[in-house]
Amino acid sequence: MARIRPAVTPLLNLRCGDDLRSRLQSAGIAGEYLCFADPVCVGPAQDDGDLMAWLGMRARYVALHASQDPAAVRLRLGREYAALNGLHRREAVWFWFEHDLWDQAALIRILSLLAEKRLLRGKLHLMPADGERTFPELTDAELAALQPVPLSDLQIEQAAEAWAAFASPDPRGLDAFSRRELALPFLAAALRRHLRDLPWTTDGLGETERRVLRAIAEGAVEEGAVFRILRNSDRVFHVTDLIVREVIGRLRQGPNRLLMRENPLRPTPRGAAVLAGTDRFRPPPRFHAGAHVLPDPPWFWDPAQAAAIQGPKA
Protein backbone atom coordinates (compact mmCIF):
# COMPACT_ATOMS: atom_id res chain seq x y z
CA MET A 1 0.00 0.00 0.00
CA ALA A 2 1.33 3.41 -0.93
CA ARG A 3 2.27 5.63 1.96
CA ILE A 4 0.05 8.69 2.33
CA ARG A 5 2.20 11.78 2.32
CA PRO A 6 1.15 14.68 4.57
CA ALA A 7 -0.35 17.67 2.86
CA VAL A 8 2.09 20.52 2.29
CA THR A 9 0.86 23.95 3.33
CA PRO A 10 2.25 27.32 2.23
CA LEU A 11 5.00 29.48 3.60
CA LEU A 12 5.36 30.11 7.33
CA ASN A 13 7.01 33.23 8.75
CA LEU A 14 8.66 32.42 12.10
CA ARG A 15 9.52 35.26 14.47
CA CYS A 16 10.46 35.57 18.17
CA GLY A 17 7.67 38.06 18.83
CA ASP A 18 4.48 39.52 17.38
CA ASP A 19 5.97 42.80 16.18
CA LEU A 20 5.99 41.78 12.50
CA ARG A 21 2.60 40.07 12.28
CA SER A 22 0.74 43.00 10.72
CA ARG A 23 3.84 44.51 9.09
CA LEU A 24 4.47 41.51 6.86
CA GLN A 25 0.91 41.66 5.62
CA SER A 26 1.16 45.38 4.85
CA ALA A 27 4.46 44.72 3.04
CA GLY A 28 2.71 42.16 0.84
CA ILE A 29 4.66 39.18 2.20
CA ALA A 30 2.58 36.03 1.97
CA GLY A 31 2.37 33.19 4.44
CA GLU A 32 1.13 32.45 7.91
CA TYR A 33 2.83 33.73 11.05
CA LEU A 34 4.18 31.81 14.03
CA CYS A 35 5.36 33.65 17.13
CA PHE A 36 7.95 31.92 19.32
CA ALA A 37 8.05 34.11 22.42
CA ASP A 38 10.07 32.13 24.97
CA PRO A 39 12.67 34.75 26.08
CA VAL A 40 15.50 32.24 26.38
CA CYS A 41 18.14 34.99 26.58
CA VAL A 42 17.07 35.57 30.20
CA GLY A 43 16.45 33.20 33.08
CA PRO A 44 17.29 29.53 33.52
CA ALA A 45 18.07 27.41 30.46
CA GLN A 46 19.25 24.05 31.76
CA ASP A 47 18.31 21.57 29.05
CA ASP A 48 18.71 17.81 29.40
CA GLY A 49 16.45 17.03 26.44
CA ASP A 50 13.29 16.53 28.53
CA LEU A 51 10.87 18.94 26.86
CA MET A 52 8.19 18.59 29.55
CA ALA A 53 10.68 19.51 32.28
CA TRP A 54 11.93 22.37 30.12
CA LEU A 55 8.42 23.77 29.61
CA GLY A 56 7.69 23.58 33.33
CA MET A 57 10.91 25.37 34.23
CA ARG A 58 10.47 28.08 31.61
CA ALA A 59 6.78 28.59 32.43
CA ARG A 60 7.61 29.20 36.08
CA TYR A 61 10.29 31.72 35.17
CA VAL A 62 8.31 33.55 32.46
CA ALA A 63 5.22 33.77 34.68
CA LEU A 64 7.27 35.37 37.45
CA HIS A 65 9.17 37.58 34.99
CA ALA A 66 6.00 38.88 33.31
CA SER A 67 3.60 38.67 36.29
CA GLN A 68 1.37 36.21 34.43
CA ASP A 69 -0.55 33.08 35.36
CA PRO A 70 1.83 30.08 35.31
CA ALA A 71 -0.78 27.73 33.85
CA ALA A 72 -1.58 30.14 31.01
CA VAL A 73 2.12 30.63 30.27
CA ARG A 74 2.67 26.87 30.27
CA LEU A 75 -0.13 26.41 27.72
CA ARG A 76 1.23 29.16 25.47
CA LEU A 77 4.77 27.83 25.55
CA GLY A 78 3.48 24.32 24.92
CA ARG A 79 1.64 25.49 21.80
CA GLU A 80 4.70 27.32 20.49
CA TYR A 81 7.03 24.37 20.96
CA ALA A 82 4.45 21.91 19.60
CA ALA A 83 4.07 24.04 16.47
CA LEU A 84 7.75 23.42 15.67
CA ASN A 85 6.94 19.73 15.18
CA GLY A 86 4.75 20.55 12.19
CA LEU A 87 7.19 22.67 10.21
CA HIS A 88 7.97 19.83 7.82
CA ARG A 89 4.46 20.24 6.39
CA ARG A 90 5.37 23.71 5.09
CA GLU A 91 6.72 24.47 1.66
CA ALA A 92 9.20 26.83 3.31
CA VAL A 93 9.86 28.46 6.68
CA TRP A 94 11.33 31.96 6.77
CA PHE A 95 13.17 32.88 9.99
CA TRP A 96 12.88 36.58 10.85
CA PHE A 97 15.66 36.80 13.44
CA GLU A 98 17.97 39.79 13.83
CA HIS A 99 21.47 40.33 15.16
CA ASP A 100 20.68 40.98 18.82
CA LEU A 101 20.98 38.57 21.73
CA TRP A 102 17.21 38.06 22.16
CA ASP A 103 16.83 36.89 18.56
CA GLN A 104 20.05 34.90 18.34
CA ALA A 105 19.33 32.98 21.54
CA ALA A 106 15.83 32.12 20.29
CA LEU A 107 17.26 31.12 16.90
CA ILE A 108 19.74 28.60 18.32
CA ARG A 109 17.06 27.23 20.65
CA ILE A 110 14.70 26.57 17.75
CA LEU A 111 17.36 25.18 15.43
CA SER A 112 18.61 22.87 18.19
CA LEU A 113 15.16 21.27 18.18
CA LEU A 114 15.03 21.02 14.39
CA ALA A 115 18.59 19.87 13.71
CA GLU A 116 17.78 16.17 13.42
CA LYS A 117 14.57 16.55 11.39
CA ARG A 118 15.53 15.35 7.91
CA LEU A 119 12.16 16.32 6.40
CA LEU A 120 13.07 19.97 6.94
CA ARG A 121 16.16 19.93 4.75
CA GLY A 122 16.00 22.67 2.16
CA LYS A 123 12.91 24.27 3.69
CA LEU A 124 14.46 26.57 6.29
CA HIS A 125 15.52 30.06 5.22
CA LEU A 126 17.00 32.98 7.15
CA MET A 127 15.91 36.51 6.32
CA PRO A 128 18.96 38.79 5.99
CA ALA A 129 19.37 41.32 8.80
CA ASP A 130 21.74 44.26 8.37
CA GLY A 131 23.22 44.08 11.87
CA GLU A 132 22.03 47.56 12.79
CA ARG A 133 18.28 48.00 12.40
CA THR A 134 15.49 45.74 13.57
CA PHE A 135 13.07 44.39 10.99
CA PRO A 136 10.19 46.57 12.28
CA GLU A 137 12.36 49.63 11.63
CA LEU A 138 12.44 48.84 7.91
CA THR A 139 9.90 50.33 5.53
CA ASP A 140 7.35 48.09 3.83
CA ALA A 141 9.32 48.39 0.59
CA GLU A 142 12.55 47.36 2.36
CA LEU A 143 10.85 44.37 3.95
CA ALA A 144 9.37 43.30 0.62
CA ALA A 145 12.79 43.51 -1.05
CA LEU A 146 14.48 41.09 1.36
CA GLN A 147 15.45 37.75 -0.16
CA PRO A 148 15.48 34.65 2.06
CA VAL A 149 18.76 32.73 2.24
CA PRO A 150 18.64 28.93 2.75
CA LEU A 151 20.02 27.81 6.09
CA SER A 152 22.94 25.48 5.46
CA ASP A 153 23.54 22.19 7.25
CA LEU A 154 26.60 23.77 8.85
CA GLN A 155 24.59 26.70 10.22
CA ILE A 156 22.00 24.36 11.70
CA GLU A 157 24.65 22.06 13.19
CA GLN A 158 26.52 24.99 14.72
CA ALA A 159 23.28 26.40 16.14
CA ALA A 160 22.61 23.10 17.91
CA GLU A 161 26.18 23.06 19.23
CA ALA A 162 25.82 26.66 20.40
CA TRP A 163 22.63 25.79 22.27
CA ALA A 164 24.28 22.88 24.08
CA ALA A 165 27.06 25.24 25.23
CA PHE A 166 24.53 27.96 26.14
CA ALA A 167 22.61 25.53 28.36
CA SER A 168 25.74 24.05 29.97
CA PRO A 169 26.47 24.79 33.65
CA ASP A 170 30.06 25.65 32.66
CA PRO A 171 30.12 28.85 30.53
CA ARG A 172 33.70 28.32 29.40
CA GLY A 173 32.49 26.02 26.63
CA LEU A 174 30.29 28.80 25.27
CA ASP A 175 33.23 31.19 25.50
CA ALA A 176 35.39 28.83 23.44
CA PHE A 177 32.58 28.27 20.93
CA SER A 178 32.06 32.02 20.45
CA ARG A 179 35.71 32.41 19.40
CA ARG A 180 35.35 30.04 16.46
CA GLU A 181 34.57 31.02 12.89
CA LEU A 182 30.79 30.69 12.82
CA ALA A 183 28.48 30.33 9.85
CA LEU A 184 25.65 32.32 11.44
CA PRO A 185 26.77 35.93 10.95
CA PHE A 186 25.71 37.54 14.24
CA LEU A 187 25.92 34.64 16.65
CA ALA A 188 29.41 35.14 18.09
CA ALA A 189 28.81 38.77 19.12
CA ALA A 190 25.47 37.87 20.73
CA LEU A 191 26.98 34.99 22.71
CA ARG A 192 29.80 37.17 23.97
CA ARG A 193 27.30 39.82 25.06
CA HIS A 194 25.48 37.08 26.97
CA LEU A 195 28.72 36.03 28.68
CA ARG A 196 29.41 39.62 29.74
CA ASP A 197 26.34 39.43 31.96
CA LEU A 198 28.19 37.02 34.23
CA PRO A 199 29.57 38.78 37.34
CA TRP A 200 32.73 40.67 36.43
CA THR A 201 35.97 40.10 38.29
CA THR A 202 36.27 43.87 38.76
CA ASP A 203 33.07 44.68 40.66
CA GLY A 204 30.72 41.66 40.70
CA LEU A 205 28.23 43.32 38.33
CA GLY A 206 27.14 41.90 34.99
CA GLU A 207 27.17 44.31 32.06
CA THR A 208 23.41 44.94 32.04
CA GLU A 209 23.40 45.46 35.80
CA ARG A 210 26.23 47.98 35.48
CA ARG A 211 24.46 49.83 32.67
CA VAL A 212 21.28 50.04 34.77
CA LEU A 213 23.12 51.22 37.89
CA ARG A 214 25.12 53.81 35.94
CA ALA A 215 22.01 55.17 34.18
CA ILE A 216 20.30 55.66 37.55
CA ALA A 217 23.40 57.25 39.08
CA GLU A 218 23.45 59.69 36.15
CA GLY A 219 19.88 60.81 36.73
CA ALA A 220 17.39 58.27 35.33
CA VAL A 221 14.85 58.19 38.16
CA GLU A 222 12.18 55.90 36.69
CA GLU A 223 12.13 52.59 34.82
CA GLY A 224 11.07 54.07 31.49
CA ALA A 225 14.07 56.39 31.41
CA VAL A 226 16.45 53.54 32.25
CA PHE A 227 14.89 51.41 29.52
CA ARG A 228 15.31 54.13 26.89
CA ILE A 229 18.96 54.69 27.82
CA LEU A 230 19.82 51.00 27.64
CA ARG A 231 17.80 50.43 24.50
CA ASN A 232 19.58 53.25 22.68
CA SER A 233 23.09 52.45 23.91
CA ASP A 234 23.43 48.69 23.39
CA ARG A 235 23.35 47.44 19.80
CA VAL A 236 23.71 43.75 20.68
CA PHE A 237 21.29 43.33 23.59
CA HIS A 238 17.96 45.04 22.91
CA VAL A 239 16.54 44.91 26.42
CA THR A 240 12.81 44.93 27.11
CA ASP A 241 11.01 46.90 29.80
CA LEU A 242 10.53 43.65 31.74
CA ILE A 243 14.25 42.87 31.62
CA VAL A 244 15.02 46.34 32.98
CA ARG A 245 12.43 45.85 35.73
CA GLU A 246 13.92 42.49 36.69
CA VAL A 247 17.47 43.89 36.88
CA ILE A 248 16.30 46.85 38.98
CA GLY A 249 14.54 44.43 41.33
CA ARG A 250 17.72 42.37 41.63
CA LEU A 251 19.77 45.45 42.53
CA ARG A 252 17.20 46.32 45.20
CA GLN A 253 17.44 42.97 46.97
CA GLY A 254 18.98 42.26 50.34
CA PRO A 255 20.62 44.29 53.08
CA ASN A 256 23.56 45.19 50.81
CA ARG A 257 21.37 46.37 47.93
CA LEU A 258 22.75 48.81 45.39
CA LEU A 259 19.49 50.72 44.75
CA MET A 260 17.08 52.26 47.24
CA ARG A 261 13.83 50.30 47.53
CA GLU A 262 11.57 53.32 47.26
CA ASN A 263 11.02 55.53 44.23
CA PRO A 264 12.42 57.63 42.67
CA LEU A 265 15.27 55.38 41.64
CA ARG A 266 18.63 56.24 43.16
CA PRO A 267 21.75 54.33 44.23
CA THR A 268 22.45 53.44 47.83
CA PRO A 269 25.84 54.47 49.27
CA ARG A 270 26.97 50.91 48.54
CA GLY A 271 25.76 51.23 44.94
CA ALA A 272 27.73 54.44 44.54
CA ALA A 273 30.79 52.71 46.02
CA VAL A 274 30.49 49.79 43.60
CA LEU A 275 30.33 52.19 40.66
CA ALA A 276 33.35 54.04 42.04
CA GLY A 277 35.32 50.82 42.30
CA THR A 278 35.66 50.83 46.09
CA ASP A 279 33.19 48.02 46.83
CA ARG A 280 31.85 44.86 45.18
CA PHE A 281 28.40 43.54 44.37
CA ARG A 282 27.46 40.12 45.75
CA PRO A 283 24.69 39.06 43.35
CA PRO A 284 21.61 37.23 44.62
CA PRO A 285 21.26 33.62 43.35
CA ARG A 286 19.97 33.22 39.81
CA PHE A 287 20.55 31.16 36.69
CA HIS A 288 22.16 32.77 33.68
CA ALA A 289 21.14 30.26 31.00
CA GLY A 290 22.84 27.08 32.26
CA ALA A 291 25.32 28.78 34.59
CA HIS A 292 24.58 29.39 38.26
CA VAL A 293 25.23 32.89 39.63
CA LEU A 294 25.71 33.11 43.41
CA PRO A 295 26.85 35.75 45.94
CA ASP A 296 30.28 34.13 45.71
CA PRO A 297 30.14 33.41 42.00
CA PRO A 298 31.45 30.12 40.63
CA TRP A 299 31.93 31.86 37.27
CA PHE A 300 33.10 35.31 36.29
CA TRP A 301 33.64 37.42 33.22
CA ASP A 302 37.22 38.68 33.27
CA PRO A 303 37.42 41.88 31.17
CA ALA A 304 41.23 41.77 31.18
CA GLN A 305 41.16 38.45 29.35
CA ALA A 306 37.77 39.03 27.70
CA ALA A 307 36.94 35.51 28.85
CA ALA A 308 34.68 33.50 31.14
CA ILE A 309 36.71 32.10 34.03
CA GLN A 310 36.09 29.91 37.06
CA GLY A 311 35.80 31.62 40.43
CA PRO A 312 37.90 30.64 43.42
CA LYS A 313 36.79 27.39 45.02
CA ALA A 314 35.69 27.46 48.64
Rank of each mutant, 00 (worst) to 15 (best):
E80S: 05
Y81S: 10
Y81T: 13
A82W: 09
A82S: 11
A82E: 14
A82M: 06
A82I: 00
A83W: 09
L84D: 11
N85H: 14
G86D: 12
R89Q: 14
R89P: 00
R90S: 01
R90Q: 12
R90K: 14
R90E: 03
A92M: 12
A92K: 14
V93C: 13
V93W: 10
W94F: 13
W94P: 00
W94V: 00
F95T: 02
F95K: 07
W96D: 02
W96T: 02
E98T: 02
H99G: 05
D100R: 13
D100V: 09
D100P: 03
D100E: 15
L101E: 14
W102K: 08
D103G: 04
D103A: 11
A105L: 07
A105R: 07
A106F: 03
A106H: 06
A106E: 02
A106M: 11
L107Y: 07
L107F: 07
I108R: 09
I110R: 08
L111M: 07
E116G: 14
K117V: 14
R118C: 00
R118A: 15
L119E: 15
L119T: 13
L119R: 15
R121N: 14
K123Y: 04
K123M: 03
L124K: 11
H125R: 15
H125M: 14
L126F: 01
P128G: 02
P128R: 11
P128N: 07
P128L: 09
A129M: 05
A129F: 04
A129I: 03
A129V: 01
A129H: 07
A129D: 12
A129N: 13
D130G: 05
G131Q: 05
G131N: 05
E132V: 14
R133E: 01
T134Y: 11
F135H: 09
F135A: 08
E137L: 10
L138R: 15
T139Y: 07
T139F: 04
D140Y: 12
D140T: 03
D140P: 00
D140W: 03
D140I: 00
A141F: 02
E142M: 11
A144Y: 05
A144D: 05
A145T: 00
A145C: 00
L146M: 10
P148C: 05
V149N: 01
P150I: 05
P150N: 08
L151V: 04
S152F: 02
S152G: 08
D153F: 01
L154D: 12
I156M: 13
I156K: 07
I156W: 04
Q158Y: 09
Q158K: 11
A159P: 04
A159F: 06
E161W: 12
W163L: 05
W163Y: 13
A164W: 10
A164L: 14
A165R: 15
F166G: 01
A167D: 04
A167M: 07
A167K: 09
S168P: 00
P169C: 10
P169Q: 10
G173A: 11
L174F: 05
L174Y: 06
D175W: 15
A176V: 12
A176Q: 15
A176N: 13
S178L: 02
R179N: 08
E181W: 05
E181D: 15
L182G: 10
A183W: 06
L184G: 06
L184W: 10
P185H: 09
F186Q: 06
L187Y: 08
L187H: 07
A188Q: 06
A188K: 10
A189H: 08
A189C: 00
A190R: 09
L191I: 07
R192A: 01
